[in-house]
Nucleic acid binder design. Structure first.
Lengths: 121, 121
DNA sequence: CGGGGAAGATTACACCTGTAATCGACAGGG
DNA sequence: CCCTGTCGATTACAGGTGTAATCTTCCCCG
């Protein structure tokens, strides 16, 4: 699966959330703080099409864009890459790391424990 | 903290493992499969210096390089970035995701449970 | 029916990254 | 004392990315 750049990912998020959309619709839904012009969004859409992670169907003179890959799949791949690179492919050190950095609230801990318990059954 | 590119990260790994080292030493320790020439490694070192994530001390006509940032800190930052981007800043969905993707072996689960238990005390 | 606006396509351009080659200085061996 | 090898510094260059502007085509409003 083709790599998706950081900015492009923001566009994918929009379409994972709602699809199909026109370029203008996507632009309208991209987070404000990106400060992107419509032209920029169109560039992103073209590149994502070229990468094969979006498809488009014609709607008169416009395109309707929709994701060609599933969000969970992409997220899984990216997470895997990070874990491979920074934690030698092992998940436990990641969790340990997060714990040590106080990224885990008591609520998180409870939730994860529940999750793991279900996994074992 | 400056962003470290994928290739540059491989150089950092070498120096986190052993420092200080000369450019030639670093080149000798970079994973074979990168297939990098000494020149390439030197470029990486310069860029990392420019980014402020390495320091160098003179040793005659050569430099001895050593990390200027701690590995755990950088790893923490990168992990945080991924979690923010792909999981809305929440850790639990990450773990859920890993679980669903069978990235968690029973041994992992046991280990994580132990880790969490310690956290609570 | 003509002009303006909107759609996608094409082009632009600077910065980052991977991957070096080349350059100028200098130290050490013969 | 000179040559050669080695060092860091500088330069190179293509592909990816952020961020658009411009071009071409065509539809709709007046």
């Amino acid at each position: 699966m083709e790599r998706i750049a950081e900015g492009e990912y923001a566009v994918m998020e929009v379409l994972w959330d709602e699809a199909p959309l026109t370029a203008a619709d996507v632009a309208a839904r991209v987070p404000e703080d990106r400060g992107w012009s419509l032209a920029t969004v169109k560039t992103m859409l073209s590149r994502l099409l070229a990468k094969g992670v979006l498809t488009h169907e014609e709607d008169g003179r416009r395109y309707l864009y929709r994701p060609a890959i599933r969000r969970e799949d992409y997220v899984a791949e990216e997470s895997g890459r990070l874990i491979d690179r920074m934690f030698g492919g092992r998940v436990t050190p990641l969790v340990a790391q997060l714990a040590a950095r106080d990224r885990l609230t008591p609520a998180d801990i409870a939730e994860i424990e529940k999750l793991l318990k279900e996994l074992k059954s």
